[in-house]
């Protein structure tokens, strides 16, 4: 059976759409990777920001425990310039496997304990103005 023409048109349009989405995502990831020097780690639990740590001002590695409502625990290790989860009592421990992050492109998430660690580059937040002005 021959494929009707409008089906082929639809297939081409869908392929184009999928390629566009992929290309957009890849470009976005590449753009986010650049600004990674001065980061602040923000720890959210149940949507509320509970901690904010400027990672470039951390000089010694330390750990802290975040306890959830039902006694869930995530042990977070803060290193100079990076942050990650080293222990969790959730079933899959995906947050531990996500390792340490040092750039704002991807957050560390523990969905069972509703914990999100987000990096925000301070360059983007504070001095959003122009780098220099000449007259």
């Amino acid at each position: 059976m021959k494929t009707p023409k409008n089906v082929i048109t639809a297939a081409i349009l869908i392929t184009a759409f999928l390629l566009l989405v992929t290309a957009g995502c890849v470009l976005f990831l590449l753009a986010a990777r650049k600004d990674s020097d001065a980061c602040t780690a923000e720890i959210y639990q149940d949507g509320k920001r509970i901690l904010s740590i400027p990672l470039d001002r951390v000089s010694e590695t330390y750990t802290l425990d975040i306890r959830g409502k039902d006694g869930c625990v995530n042990r977070i290790e803060v290193r100079p310039g990076s942050i990650g989860v080293v222990y969790a009592d959730c079933p899959d421990r995906l947050c531990v496997r996500q390792g340490f992050v040092s750039s704002p492109s991807v957050p560390v998430t523990c969905l069972p304990n509703r914990l999100v660690i987000l990096l925000r580059s301070r360059g983007a937040a504070d001095d959003a103005g122009p780098d220099a002005i000449t007259y």
Partner: peptide
């Protein structure tokens, strides 16, 4: 759904990874 559960906008930055992965 994860956004609704955690109500953290930052989780949406997984989109650029998860969309191509889903495709």
């Amino acid at each position: 759904a994860a956004f609704v559960v955690t109500s953290t906008p930052g989780i949406l930055s997984y989109f650029p990874l998860l969309l191509p992965a889903g495709i």
